[in-house]
Simulated assay, not measured.
Amino acid sequence: MRLKKDYRYILFDLDRTLWDFDSNARNNIFSLLDKHKVQVSDKSEFFKTYDEINHKLWSQYERGEIKKEDLRWLRFHNAFLHYGIDDRSFATDFGEEYLEEMPNQNILMPHAKEVLKELSERGVKMALISNGFKEVQYRKLRNSGIDGYFSAVMISEEQGVHKPSPVIFKRALKAINGEKSSALMVGDDFANDIEGAMIFGIDQFFYNYKNIPCDGGPTYDSSDLRDLIRPD
């Protein structure tokens, strides 16, 4: 697949688009379970349980239904409950240690750095938009060695607004002096990244690495970030 036009401004999501959230989270949680000798029958099953709970709670957080502080401990407390562990204090400490260690994991999505490097060399201006926690996201960028590619970073917590609100897209594009007609949003989350970009009025690159059936009609639907740099 090749892009239909030459985009001069590209907005990127971070987690699961550039930074391999699932692999990094799994490695981090496995390490913490071992460190604290948590008795779970199967670490992979525990992670699956946690991931489902975390996804639901994140959606509530993005809708403003729960606070950040509650999300940080509830996701682990609720996961531990499935294994007969009902200890809010431990879940809180585990959650804080998880966040502290998370940015030290630095696995990127396939070809992420290669693509960012090529786009940068072509003179494309790039900004990053993330709904993650500010104290974690900046460290992820720095520790994985991709922070230097972005002229602007928009973290929802700092901006007071989450994707898919068009407000955060507008601020990101303005920060790099971009124009809508030459702008592209790249992300893996259809609701937050792709529909948000649609509402804002810029083209969208749905990084569909899980090959999810898609009826929403994004400008591009691809499982390979290298499609962003295919030659004309």
Rank of each mutant, 00 (worst) to 15 (best):
N143F: 14
L173V: 05
A91C: 08
Y149N: 11
Y9D: 07
S165W: 01
M109E: 14
K125G: 09
R26P: 06
I194H: 01
N211E: 05
E135I: 12
L173Y: 04
S223W: 12
E100L: 15
K140N: 14
D6C: 12
K125W: 14
F76P: 01
G132K: 03
F150I: 13
L116V: 09
S165N: 02
P213Q: 11
Q137H: 06
E65K: 09
A112R: 06
I199F: 00
A112F: 04
K4C: 02
K117G: 04
R26T: 13
S144E: 15
Y220K: 15
K134F: 04
S144C: 13
T92P: 00
L32T: 08
S31W: 05
F47H: 03
M185Y: 00
R75A: 01
I202R: 04
L81H: 09
T92F: 07
P164R: 01
N208D: 13
N131G: 01
N28W: 02
M185Q: 06
R63L: 13
L173S: 05
M154V: 12
E158F: 14
F47A: 01
Y220L: 14
A183T: 02
L3Q: 13
Y50H: 06
S130T: 14
I199T: 08
R2P: 05
K163Y: 10
D34S: 12
A79K: 00
I29C: 06
L141P: 03
V186M: 00
E158M: 10
F205H: 15
E195N: 12
F133P: 07
K5T: 11
Q137C: 06
G95Y: 04
V124D: 04
H55V: 13
K163T: 11
L32S: 03
D70E: 13
D224S: 15
E69Y: 02
M109N: 10
K4L: 04
F21A: 12
Y138T: 11
H36S: 03
R75M: 01
G64P: 08
N104D: 14
H36Q: 07
L3P: 03
G187H: 06
S223C: 14
Y207H: 08
F30C: 07
K48N: 12
K117P: 01
M102K: 08
L74Q: 05
S59K: 14
N27C: 01
S156C: 00
D215E: 09
M198L: 12
S181Y: 15
D232Y: 10
R63A: 11
